Amino acid sequence: MSDTSWLTEFPQLDRQQLLAIRQTLDGAYRTFSREYGDTIESFFDPLLSFLIGFEKLLLATPWWLMIALLAALAFYASRSWKLAIGVVVAFVFIGLFGMWDDTMRTMSIIIASTLLAVLIGVPVGIWMARSDRVQRWVTPLLDVMQTMPAFVYLIPVVMLLGIGKIPGLIAVVIYAIPPVIRLTNLGIRLVDKEVLEAAEAYGASRWQRLTGVQLPLAMPTIMAGINQTIMMALAMVVIASMIGVKGLGQPVLKSITNQYFTLGLLNGLAIVALAIMFDRISQSYARRAQQHLSGSRHD
């Protein structure tokens, strides 16, 4: 009988070769982290100071004032008393069950990571919309960022920066930024070419067409991307707690390791309340922006 093992066995490097490759790559990264880790860490010092200051501000704000501000924000975005009352009820229960401080810490990291993702993601999305070549290069990178297991992000970040707020923020941003980039690119590309041609005919510069035509028309789509970014950032709360990010994720992680069902359930519900609040506010704002834009067109 003929040997048919070649039909099922894939040729591969032997164990010694694989071990040598892994050791070389690991050694190179360790050397890089030792030589440049302090420099990179000092680069993020202003961001760390902002995170600490913002967290202290949220914790120092009286609970009644914070609830009033969140309810006012919900009503401004949605013009819905039901949503505003729902925000009040949710945060009152969060406070009654002793989760206020952890909720404020989680809000600080979510808001900071979302702002950073928007500041980076919207310009990258605009760049992609203006260049097919850039889109071809960036799209595979976004695919990797969205499909790579979140735990894998933590390995190089922790090796380089240790544990704490900044590594957690970086991991959250990497995981959450693809939607805002993709939908910014999509929103700008979907802007009617005839509208752009009309703006160009009136003598609008490239910058004026971007800020006065493309971004306003693409805003509902961009807001949908920001909404998804917030949801993905909240999904990273528990994973980020593994590298020292304080907030609602740490009690959930503790409940998993110690089998505290009630502790995990309550903190999980607090994360759900935050997710619903951010989701409803961002969606309502996007919907109002779309209605305002449609009304302006008809006028």
Rank of each mutant, 00 (worst) to 15 (best):
R105V: 02
S108K: 11
I109C: 01
L116R: 01
F91C: 10
V122S: 03
K193V: 13
S108I: 02
W63V: 03
Y153L: 00
I166R: 01
I110E: 11
Y153C: 00
K193P: 06
V195R: 05
W64V: 00
A84M: 09
G86I: 15
K165L: 15
P62R: 02
Q135C: 08
T139G: 07
A201V: 05
I120A: 08
L190G: 10
A68L: 07
A68M: 12
P140I: 14
V134E: 08
E194D: 14
A171Y: 04
D192H: 10
V87I: 12
F97G: 06
I181K: 01
I166A: 02
T139K: 10
L196H: 09
M148Q: 04
V124R: 07
V87Q: 07
V134P: 04
I85L: 15
L190I: 06
P156L: 08
I110Q: 09
V173S: 07
F75L: 13
I188S: 04
I163V: 02
I94Q: 06
A117F: 00
I94R: 13
V152M: 04
I85R: 14
F97H: 11
V180L: 09
K82E: 10
L190H: 11
L96S: 08
A201R: 03
V180E: 11
A117V: 01
I188E: 06
A90D: 04
P123D: 07
I111F: 13
Q146K: 01
A60S: 13
A60C: 04
T114H: 01
M145R: 02
I170R: 06
A176T: 00
R133F: 14
G164P: 01
A117H: 01
T139P: 02
R182V: 11
P156Y: 03
F75N: 15
G168W: 15
G187V: 07
A90E: 05
L154D: 01
I163R: 05
Q135D: 14
W100T: 05
M159C: 09
T103M: 08
I177R: 01
I174P: 00
M145Y: 15
V180I: 15
A71W: 03
L183Q: 06
T184L: 12
I85F: 09
V144M: 14
M107R: 02
Q146C: 01
T103E: 11
V134Y: 05
I170W: 04
P123L: 05
L83W: 08
V157L: 14
S113T: 02
V158Q: 05
P149R: 06
D101N: 11
D102A: 07
M148V: 07
A199P: 06
R79H: 08
A150K: 07
L142S: 07
T106I: 00
I155S: 00
A112F: 13
G164N: 06
R105E: 11
T114I: 00
A77E: 12
V92R: 10
G162S: 03
L73F: 13
A198Y: 12
A198P: 01
D132H: 13
M159K: 08
R130T: 03
M107I: 04
R182P: 05
M159P: 05
